[in-house]
Design a protein around this nucleic acid. Structure first.
Lengths: 192, 192
DNA sequence: TCATTACCCTACGCTAGCGTATGGTGTCTC
DNA sequence: GAGACACCATACGCTAGCGTAGGGTAATGA
């Protein structure tokens, strides 16, 4: 964290991403980050033109890593049904793993964040829809169920992250059982 | 809006709530609001101790009105299934009706907003769960389905509000058809 | 070894917003 | 009609954060 050697633009972007996870978008601030890196903002303005450029760098870093991570963990699972289950499980425990995403959602009005989230949502939504189509639902039905699944685990992860303990999913079997019951409902009337 | 007469604390709270709906929590700022009300902040600090008090007043105003409105519109419908349908329909078109709520969710880390939203979520969640119990599901199953319904329409309203046009629910029948299909899934295997 | 380059510091100006002190004015009351 | 009170203006100090100017230093390559 606090380095002895001199810094690069990547060091700054890394620190910015970390700050985003801890304090939200507004925590990506030049002077506080400089202090944290044991340096003055004179350093920053050598590597970046302005704060916006730093925010953009941190967002790019996040997008790359988050998509890589999700794709990697999901591609390991060949069965579509198991993939959906994985999607859900991951989303529910997303709070601890990726607090940057939670904080990004809260800043979705920001002109840099808005298009980024739009891309990410689009990808995930249609990925989910595709899964339901692979399972055997018609395209129209897959769109409906996929959209429902996506909003459900989006809302779920948001709420559990921001209001821990408020969802009564710990009763009777824990998270796994809840995920199973959700899937049972989402897959009801499954053809094939 | 811009008044000729002198102001009361309620006028300030009202303007603050309006600003919250338009620009988020940070838009509840003393000097901009004063300018908007055609007055200086000397007026404000006569009515309130500080900014936090104004935020609290605006939040109280919102909580009171939003719960009143929702309860009124839902109590008019006696059938539980129709009520759930109403809940969903309302949530989806929530963006235009209550942008203050959307902006509040984005500020849920704020120490004044956090407990407020926690209360509201708690109320709505268990209200939804009760509906599923009234329909005939067991308590355990009602908790699962209610939680799922709640997160689904929470996520739905958030996404449609922040990223209009991104959800493919307008295809083939519009919102009403989508709500119906969601309900069909959520009520699958319904006893009684 | 010496100049160049990469990186950083110090010091400054600027803005938005919070909060305070104090004085002014219209309206109500006796 | 004279005070009292409610409401507001003016003017100030303060903080956090952005951005700039210009000088300094350590390492590196010729």
């Amino acid at each position: 964290m606090t380095q002895e050697r001199r810094l690069t633009a990547e060091d700054w972007a890394e620190a910015a991403l970390e700050a985003l996870g801890e304090g939200g978008l507004s925590a990506i601030a030049v002077e506080p980050l400089a202090a944290r890196l044991g340096v003055t903002k004179g350093s920053f303005y050598w590597h970046f033109a302005n704060r916006e450029a730093l925010v953009a760098a941190a967002l790019a870093l996040w997008e790359q890593r988050s998509t890589e991570a999700k794709i990697a963990s999901l591609n390991a699972e060949p069965d579509p049904v198991a993939r959906i289950r994985l999607l859900f499980s991951q989303a529910i425990e997303l709070a601890g793993r990726d607090s940057a995403e939670i904080n990004l959602r809260a800043a979705s009005d920001n002109p840099l964040v808005q298009p980024l989230l739009r891309r990410v949502i689009q990808r995930r939504l249609w990925y989910t829809i595709d899964l339901f189509e692979q399972i055997g639902f018609s395209r129209e039905e897959a769109i409906r169920r996929g959209a429902m699944a996506f909003t459900a685990y989006g809302g779920q992860s948001e709420i559990t992250a921001r209001f821990p303990g408020i969802m009564p999913i710990d009763e009777g079997g824990g998270i796994g059982a809840y995920v199973d019951s959700v899937l049972e409902v989402l897959l009801s009337g499954r053809p094939g």
